[in-house]
């Protein structure tokens, strides 16, 4: 017993060993409590509640809130049959693919150039600052800006095309007649949305890929160079296989982000023309806030949740495996 006591000045303290066991674990719970309490109330409960609502009739019918009344799978069946929902899933997929493939290719190309010591590209920092800038700008502002830029009859893109003689100069006199109405065409609108996403995100992907390549042991490159490999060979046979996990990471995070695509299509044309640019989250938002049919909105939310969970699990296992591999190989 005496061993457990330490006297400092006029205070009696118990030895560290004993105090550790008795009181410190309490602080652990105390310190993480705010997070878990707030998470439970504002994140977990709404998620479970959304799950519950998805099995109920819960809506405003002639200004009266009805429900929630349990109806089983009714919302899910209605939602799957609804061409607007399947259309929204298709639109989201198209908008994502058309932006992601060029985004990854350009980011890879730039990353290969910037990390090649033989090319020794200067002013990389300035270039990164420039191309990353659109990424942190308010997406809502960017959407309205592009809406204004591409607008018809009066819009800078139209007047630029007229100035470059791509459309007749008479445009400046009679814009209605000679201007291009971009937002009437579903394809043009989709391309503009995909372009904005591409333009906002390729710098981000590039920075991540460069960081991944810089993380590779330089000795591997050096010995490849001594063996006489060309830049292209090194990139194909060494860099690409080694950054595969990082590429998969950017792929899956971009996919999860893409499933939530909202700000740009919402503020550009609100899903138009003819719902051809309506995304999944726009449908969820519209059902909840405009149609005020919470049951249906919740059913689509749960579908989105399942899709996202599958993808997240994939990342989780990817990194678990990568950790094991890294320990064996000592690459990262």
């Amino acid at each position: 017993m005496v061993d457990n006591k330490v006297t400092v000045g006029n205070k009696t303290l118990y030895s560290r060993k004993r105090r550790n066991k008795v009181s410190y674990s309490r602080y652990g719970y105390l310190f993480i409590a705010p997070f878990f309490i707030v998470y439970a109330i504002f994140h977990l409960y709404p998620l479970l509640y959304t799950f519950y609502i998805s099995f109920t009739d819960y809506l405003y019918a002639s200004f009266n809130l009805v429900g929630p009344d349990f109806v089983g799978l009714k919302n899910y069946i209605e939602v799957i049959k609804n061409p607007r929902v399947t259309g929204a899933i298709k639109n989201t997929a198209i908008l994502w693919i058309v932006n992601y493939i060029p985004q990854l290719l350009l980011a890879l190309l730039l990353a290969a150039w910037f990390t090649d010591p033989r090319l020794n590209i200067r002013r990389q920092g300035t270039f990164k600052v420039m191309v990353f800038m659109p990424n942190i700008m308010t997406a809502a502002t960017i959407a309205v800006l592009f809406y204004a830029l591409f607008s018809y009859p009066v819009g800078p893109i139209n007047s630029m095309l007229a100035k470059l003689n791509i459309i007749p100069k008479e445009y400046f006199l009679r814009p209605e007649e000679y201007g291009i109405e971009f937002f009437r065409s579903p394809m043009a609108t989709r391309l503009i949305i995909s372009f904005i996403q591409f333009w906002m995100w390729y710098g981000h992907t590039m920075i991540i890929l460069i960081a991944g390549i810089m993380g590779i042991d330089p000795e591997i490159f050096e010995s490849a160079e001594i063996d006489g490999a060309t830049g292209g060979q090194i990139f194909r046979n060494i860099t690409l296989p080694l950054i595969k996990p990082i590429m998969l990471y950017t792929l899956v995070t971009s996919l999860i982000g893409g499933l939530q695509m909202f700000d740009i299509p919402k503020l550009l044309l609100n899903g138009g023309p003819d719902y051809k640019t309506e995304t999944i989250t726009m449908y969820i938002f519209g059902q909840a806030m405009e149609s005020r049919n919470y049951g249906k909105s919740a059913a689509v939310s749960i579908v989105l949740f399942i899709l996202t969970s599958i993808l997240s699990l994939f990342i989780f296992y990817l990194f678990k495996e990568e950790d094991n591999v890294a320990e064996e190989k000592g690459v990262w």
Binding site: Y49, I284, A288, Y294, A298, S301, T308, S312
Partner: peptide, 16 residues
């Protein structure tokens, strides 16, 4: 829960 987007719980959150 790292990857759970806020959008999926938005309806429940709004009603709460």
């Amino acid at each position: 829960v790292l990857m759970v987007p806020t959008q999926v719980a938005a309806v429940g959150f709004y009603r709460l």
